[in-house]
Write a protein that binds this DNA or RNA. Structure first.
Lengths: 118, 118
DNA sequence: ACCGTTCGCTATATTTATTGTAGTATACAG
DNA sequence: CTGTATACTACAATAAATATAGCGAACGGT
Protein backbone atom coordinates (compact mmCIF):
# COMPACT_ATOMS: atom_id res chain seq x y z
CA UNK A 1 0.00 0.00 0.00
CA UNK A 2 2.69 2.43 1.07
CA UNK A 3 4.79 0.92 -1.67
CA UNK A 4 2.21 1.94 -4.25
CA UNK A 5 2.34 5.53 -3.06
CA UNK A 6 6.12 5.53 -3.19
CA UNK A 7 6.10 4.27 -6.74
CA UNK A 8 3.63 6.90 -7.84
CA UNK A 9 5.71 9.68 -6.36
CA UNK A 10 8.83 8.29 -7.90
CA UNK A 11 7.30 8.16 -11.35
CA UNK A 12 6.30 11.81 -11.04
CA UNK A 13 9.67 12.85 -9.71
CA UNK A 14 12.03 11.37 -12.27
CA UNK A 15 10.24 11.99 -15.52
CA UNK A 16 11.78 10.30 -18.53
CA UNK A 17 13.61 13.52 -19.42
CA UNK A 18 14.00 12.52 -23.01
CA UNK A 19 15.70 15.41 -24.81
CA UNK A 20 14.06 14.61 -28.12
CA UNK A 21 10.50 14.39 -26.82
CA UNK A 22 9.55 18.08 -27.13
CA UNK A 23 10.87 18.28 -30.68
CA UNK A 24 9.35 14.93 -31.58
CA UNK A 25 5.96 16.31 -30.63
CA UNK A 26 6.37 18.73 -33.53
CA UNK A 27 8.51 17.11 -36.21
CA UNK A 28 7.22 13.63 -35.46
CA UNK A 29 3.88 14.57 -37.00
CA UNK A 30 2.95 13.64 -40.51
CA UNK A 31 3.84 16.25 -43.18
CA UNK A 32 5.78 18.54 -40.82
CA UNK A 33 9.20 17.76 -42.26
CA UNK A 34 8.02 18.09 -45.84
CA UNK A 35 6.32 21.41 -45.15
CA UNK A 36 9.46 22.84 -43.59
CA UNK A 37 11.54 21.52 -46.45
CA UNK A 38 9.45 23.31 -49.04
CA UNK A 39 9.74 26.57 -47.12
CA UNK A 40 13.51 26.45 -46.70
CA UNK A 41 15.78 29.23 -47.97
CA UNK A 42 13.33 32.03 -47.48
CA UNK A 43 10.74 30.80 -49.90
CA UNK A 44 7.17 32.02 -49.60
CA UNK A 45 4.67 29.42 -50.65
CA UNK A 46 0.92 29.42 -51.04
CA UNK A 47 -1.51 27.00 -49.56
CA UNK A 48 -2.36 25.40 -52.89
CA UNK A 49 1.30 25.19 -53.89
CA UNK A 50 2.01 23.23 -50.74
CA UNK A 51 -0.95 21.00 -51.50
CA UNK A 52 0.45 20.27 -54.95
CA UNK A 53 4.02 19.73 -53.85
CA UNK A 54 3.17 17.51 -50.91
CA UNK A 55 1.11 15.42 -53.26
CA UNK A 56 -1.91 13.99 -51.58
CA UNK A 57 -2.16 15.85 -48.32
CA UNK A 58 -5.66 16.58 -47.20
CA UNK A 59 -6.51 20.28 -47.04
CA UNK A 60 -7.90 19.84 -43.53
CA UNK A 61 -4.69 18.21 -42.38
CA UNK A 62 -2.52 20.81 -44.12
CA UNK A 63 -4.55 23.59 -42.58
CA UNK A 64 -4.30 22.25 -39.06
CA UNK A 65 -0.60 21.45 -39.47
CA UNK A 66 0.17 24.98 -40.66
CA UNK A 67 -1.85 26.37 -37.79
CA UNK A 68 0.14 24.27 -35.35
CA UNK A 69 3.45 25.32 -36.91
CA UNK A 70 2.39 28.95 -36.71
CA UNK A 71 1.48 28.59 -33.04
CA UNK A 72 4.82 26.92 -32.34
CA UNK A 73 6.57 29.88 -33.94
CA UNK A 74 8.04 27.96 -36.84
CA UNK A 75 5.92 29.28 -39.70
CA UNK A 76 4.72 32.78 -40.52
CA UNK A 77 1.42 33.41 -42.33
CA UNK A 78 0.86 36.52 -44.41
CA UNK A 79 -2.19 37.65 -46.30
CA UNK A 80 -1.29 39.21 -49.61
CA UNK A 81 -3.69 41.82 -50.95
CA UNK A 82 -3.14 41.20 -54.63
CA UNK A 83 -5.34 39.98 -57.43
CA UNK A 84 -6.47 37.48 -56.57
CA UNK A 85 -5.73 37.87 -52.86
CA UNK A 86 -3.92 34.94 -51.35
CA UNK A 87 -1.85 33.76 -48.42
CA UNK A 88 1.86 33.11 -48.20
CA UNK A 89 3.59 30.87 -45.72
CA UNK A 90 7.25 31.18 -44.87
CA UNK A 91 9.64 30.15 -42.11
CA UNK A 92 10.44 32.24 -39.05
CA UNK A 93 13.99 32.33 -37.75
CA UNK A 94 13.11 29.38 -35.54
CA UNK A 95 11.92 27.50 -38.59
CA UNK A 96 14.99 28.39 -40.65
CA UNK A 97 17.18 26.87 -37.97
CA UNK A 98 15.62 23.50 -38.72
CA UNK A 99 17.70 23.45 -41.89
CA UNK A 100 20.59 21.45 -40.37
CA UNK A 101 18.06 18.86 -39.22
CA UNK A 102 16.57 18.59 -42.69
CA UNK A 103 20.00 18.39 -44.28
CA UNK A 104 21.02 15.52 -42.02
CA UNK A 105 17.78 13.74 -42.79
CA UNK A 106 18.38 14.09 -46.52
CA UNK A 107 21.97 12.93 -46.15
CA UNK A 108 20.93 9.85 -44.20
CA UNK A 109 18.17 9.19 -46.68
CA UNK A 110 20.48 9.40 -49.67
CA UNK A 111 22.89 6.92 -48.12
CA UNK A 112 20.44 4.41 -46.65
CA UNK A 113 17.23 4.80 -48.60
CA UNK A 114 18.80 5.59 -51.94
CA UNK A 115 17.86 8.53 -54.10
CA UNK A 116 14.35 7.22 -54.58
CA UNK A 117 11.55 9.67 -53.99
CA UNK A 118 8.17 8.35 -52.96
CA UNK B 1 -11.74 14.58 -72.32
CA UNK B 2 -8.33 14.27 -73.92
CA UNK B 3 -7.22 17.02 -71.60
CA UNK B 4 -8.13 14.87 -68.62
CA UNK B 5 -5.93 12.07 -69.90
CA UNK B 6 -3.03 14.44 -70.43
CA UNK B 7 -3.29 15.75 -66.92
CA UNK B 8 -3.34 12.28 -65.43
CA UNK B 9 -0.21 11.29 -67.33
CA UNK B 10 1.51 14.49 -66.34
CA UNK B 11 0.78 13.96 -62.66
CA UNK B 12 2.30 10.51 -62.87
CA UNK B 13 5.32 11.72 -64.79
CA UNK B 14 6.56 14.58 -62.64
CA UNK B 15 6.13 13.29 -59.13
CA UNK B 16 6.86 15.79 -56.37
CA UNK B 17 10.37 14.33 -55.91
CA UNK B 18 10.66 15.57 -52.36
CA UNK B 19 13.98 14.35 -50.94
CA UNK B 20 12.68 14.19 -47.39
CA UNK B 21 9.54 12.20 -48.15
CA UNK B 22 11.00 8.68 -47.87
CA UNK B 23 12.67 9.48 -44.55
CA UNK B 24 9.61 11.32 -43.30
CA UNK B 25 7.59 8.17 -43.82
CA UNK B 26 9.77 6.59 -41.12
CA UNK B 27 10.86 9.29 -38.69
CA UNK B 28 7.65 11.25 -39.09
CA UNK B 29 5.80 8.60 -37.14
CA UNK B 30 5.01 8.95 -33.49
CA UNK B 31 7.65 7.52 -31.10
CA UNK B 32 10.21 6.74 -33.81
CA UNK B 33 12.68 9.46 -32.85
CA UNK B 34 12.44 8.64 -29.16
CA UNK B 35 12.95 4.93 -29.76
CA UNK B 36 16.06 5.57 -31.83
CA UNK B 37 17.35 8.00 -29.22
CA UNK B 38 17.12 5.42 -26.44
CA UNK B 39 19.00 2.89 -28.54
CA UNK B 40 21.88 5.20 -29.48
CA UNK B 41 25.49 4.38 -28.69
CA UNK B 42 25.15 0.63 -28.96
CA UNK B 43 22.69 0.19 -26.14
CA UNK B 44 20.53 -2.92 -26.00
CA UNK B 45 17.17 -2.28 -24.46
CA UNK B 46 14.25 -4.48 -23.56
CA UNK B 47 10.67 -4.03 -24.56
CA UNK B 48 9.52 -3.09 -21.08
CA UNK B 49 12.45 -0.73 -20.58
CA UNK B 50 11.40 1.15 -23.70
CA UNK B 51 7.84 1.21 -22.43
CA UNK B 52 9.02 2.79 -19.17
CA UNK B 53 11.38 5.29 -20.74
CA UNK B 54 8.98 6.44 -23.42
CA UNK B 55 6.42 7.01 -20.72
CA UNK B 56 2.93 6.30 -21.89
CA UNK B 57 3.36 4.50 -25.16
CA UNK B 58 0.86 1.78 -25.78
CA UNK B 59 2.38 -1.70 -26.02
CA UNK B 60 0.54 -2.32 -29.28
CA UNK B 61 1.95 0.84 -30.78
CA UNK B 62 5.44 0.12 -29.50
CA UNK B 63 5.26 -3.38 -30.87
CA UNK B 64 4.18 -2.31 -34.33
CA UNK B 65 6.68 0.55 -34.41
CA UNK B 66 9.55 -1.78 -33.50
CA UNK B 67 8.37 -4.23 -36.13
CA UNK B 68 8.35 -1.46 -38.73
CA UNK B 69 11.82 -0.29 -37.71
CA UNK B 70 13.10 -3.84 -37.93
CA UNK B 71 11.64 -4.25 -41.42
CA UNK B 72 13.20 -0.97 -42.50
CA UNK B 73 16.56 -2.24 -41.31
CA UNK B 74 17.01 0.30 -38.55
CA UNK B 75 16.52 -1.88 -35.49
CA UNK B 76 17.74 -5.38 -34.67
CA UNK B 77 15.75 -7.74 -32.47
CA UNK B 78 17.45 -10.49 -30.49
CA UNK B 79 15.97 -13.14 -28.25
CA UNK B 80 18.07 -13.73 -25.18
CA UNK B 81 17.89 -17.19 -23.65
CA UNK B 82 18.46 -16.24 -20.06
CA UNK B 83 16.35 -16.52 -16.96
CA UNK B 84 13.88 -15.19 -17.52
CA UNK B 85 14.19 -15.16 -21.30
CA UNK B 86 13.71 -11.78 -22.88
CA UNK B 87 14.22 -9.71 -25.99
CA UNK B 88 16.77 -7.02 -26.69
CA UNK B 89 16.45 -4.28 -29.27
CA UNK B 90 19.44 -2.40 -30.65
CA UNK B 91 20.33 -0.28 -33.67
CA UNK B 92 21.75 -1.61 -36.88
CA UNK B 93 24.46 0.34 -38.68
CA UNK B 94 21.72 2.09 -40.60
CA UNK B 95 20.08 3.03 -37.33
CA UNK B 96 23.33 4.24 -35.76
CA UNK B 97 23.80 6.62 -38.66
CA UNK B 98 20.68 8.45 -37.53
CA UNK B 99 22.74 9.88 -34.68
CA UNK B 100 23.64 13.12 -36.51
CA UNK B 101 19.95 13.66 -37.17
CA UNK B 102 19.09 13.16 -33.51
CA UNK B 103 21.92 15.44 -32.41
CA UNK B 104 20.71 18.22 -34.67
CA UNK B 105 17.19 17.79 -33.36
CA UNK B 106 18.40 18.04 -29.78
CA UNK B 107 20.53 21.06 -30.59
CA UNK B 108 17.60 22.84 -32.22
CA UNK B 109 15.35 21.87 -29.36
CA UNK B 110 17.73 23.21 -26.73
CA UNK B 111 17.97 26.55 -28.50
CA UNK B 112 14.34 27.05 -29.48
CA UNK B 113 12.28 24.94 -27.12
CA UNK B 114 14.47 25.38 -24.07
CA UNK B 115 15.79 22.56 -21.97
CA UNK B 116 12.32 21.54 -20.92
CA UNK B 117 11.48 17.89 -21.27
CA UNK B 118 7.91 16.83 -21.81
C1' DA C 1 -26.56 43.47 -60.76
C1' DC C 2 -25.08 39.04 -62.01
C1' DC C 3 -21.86 35.26 -63.45
C1' DG C 4 -17.56 33.07 -63.42
C1' DT C 5 -12.82 32.43 -61.63
C1' DT C 6 -9.21 31.97 -58.19
C1' DC C 7 -7.75 31.13 -53.75
C1' DG C 8 -8.00 29.53 -49.04
C1' DC C 9 -9.85 27.19 -46.61
C1' DT C 10 -14.10 24.42 -43.75
C1' DA C 11 -17.69 20.38 -43.31
C1' DT C 12 -19.00 15.76 -43.25
C1' DA C 13 -18.46 11.06 -43.42
C1' DT C 14 -15.11 7.27 -43.61
C1' DT C 15 -10.87 5.02 -42.80
C1' DT C 16 -6.58 4.53 -40.19
C1' DA C 17 -3.67 5.15 -35.98
C1' DT C 18 -3.13 5.35 -31.20
C1' DT C 19 -4.69 4.47 -26.61
C1' DG C 20 -6.49 2.12 -22.13
C1' DT C 21 -7.08 -1.95 -20.19
C1' DA C 22 -6.92 -6.54 -19.89
C1' DG C 23 -5.35 -10.92 -21.02
C1' DT C 24 -2.32 -14.67 -23.27
C1' DA C 25 1.95 -17.35 -23.95
C1' DT C 26 6.35 -19.03 -22.67
C1' DA C 27 9.97 -20.31 -19.54
C1' DC C 28 11.39 -21.31 -15.69
C1' DA C 29 11.81 -21.87 -10.05
C1' DG C 30 10.04 -23.87 -6.03
C1' DC D 1 0.92 -27.16 -9.95
C1' DT D 2 1.38 -22.45 -8.52
C1' DG D 3 3.77 -18.17 -8.91
C1' DT D 4 6.81 -14.80 -11.23
C1' DA D 5 8.87 -12.38 -15.02
C1' DT D 6 8.94 -10.90 -19.77
C1' DA D 7 6.93 -9.92 -24.16
C1' DC D 8 3.79 -9.23 -26.21
C1' DT D 9 -1.61 -9.70 -28.37
C1' DA D 10 -6.86 -8.57 -28.17
C1' DC D 11 -10.58 -5.63 -27.98
C1' DA D 12 -13.15 -1.62 -27.48
C1' DA D 13 -12.80 3.40 -27.51
C1' DT D 14 -10.77 7.81 -28.86
C1' DA D 15 -7.94 10.70 -31.89
C1' DA D 16 -5.90 11.70 -36.36
C1' DA D 17 -5.86 11.60 -41.34
C1' DT D 18 -8.34 11.02 -45.67
C1' DA D 19 -11.72 11.58 -49.74
C1' DT D 20 -14.88 14.45 -51.44
C1' DA D 21 -17.57 18.25 -51.61
C1' DG D 22 -18.64 22.84 -50.86
C1' DC D 23 -18.46 27.76 -48.86
C1' DG D 24 -16.99 32.66 -48.79
C1' DA D 25 -14.34 36.59 -50.13
C1' DA D 26 -12.43 39.39 -53.81
C1' DC D 27 -12.25 40.61 -57.79
C1' DG D 28 -13.03 40.92 -63.34
C1' DG D 29 -16.02 40.84 -67.16
C1' DT D 30 -20.74 41.81 -69.24
Amino acid sequence: MELAVDLREASLANLPLCPVAPAARIIGQKWTLQIVYYLLDGKSVRFCELQDELGGVNPSTLSSRLKMLEEEGIVRRRQISAIPPHVEYSLTEMGCHLKPVILEVIRWSNVWLGDRCE
